[in-house]
Each structure stands twice: as C-alpha cells, then as structure tokens.
C-alpha cells in the first residue's frame, strides 16, 4: 500500500511517500511495523497521540482496520485556515 507522510512526520522520516508491503490488520499494527524498521520511524511515531491518520484520504482512528485500504497518510494535527 502507499504510505504518505506530511509536515514534520515527512521531515523526521525523510521521505514523502513509499510503498509498504504489509500484513498489518490495523493502523496501529502498521505503526508498530514501521517503528521496528528504523530509528527515524521510531522518532516520528514515538507519540501517536500527536499524530493523525487518514485512510484513502479520509480521517480515521489508529485502531481502524486496513483491509481494502490503498493509501495511508500520517501527519500532525492540521493547521489550516
């Protein structure tokens, strides 16, 4: 699946998007996989309460299932307006 990162999550991980081959059933499981991958991910995902997630461009929760999802995006709380 496509995994996208925005704002300081993108900066900490060092890339804007990547394709991840995963069997994670939920967002939280995907986060755990990513954190185990590399220290940069561990730093970015250290406090998930500071993060938001969107599944196929719709805001979701970290316990949401990933079945059928093609695009996951992680980012900090939004600051529009």
């Amino acid at each position: 699946m496509q995994v996208l990162y925005f704002a300081w999550v993108r900066e900490r991980i060092g890339l804007p998007r990547e394709v991840i081959d995963t069997k994670a059933a939920t967002v939280a499981e995907l986060v755990a996989e990513l954190r185990a991958k590399d220290a940069r991910y561990d730093a970015a995902f250290g406090d998930v309460s500071a993060l938001r997630v969107a599944l196929d461009q719709d805001l979701a929760e970290f316990d949401a299932p990933l079945a059928g999802v093609r695009e996951v995006a992680f980012f900090p709380p939004m600051t529009g307006g």
């Binding site: 969107a54 900090p76 709380p77 529009g80 307006g81």
Partner: peptide, 11 residues
C-alpha cells in the same frame, strides 16, 4: 473546521 480538519500544515 478548515483550521483543524482540512489537511494543511503551516511552517
């Protein structure tokens, strides 16, 4: 809602 629910980030 645009402030907190539209995906924009300011630096």
């Amino acid at each position: 809602y645009l402030k907190s629910r539209a995906p924009f980030w300011k630096k």
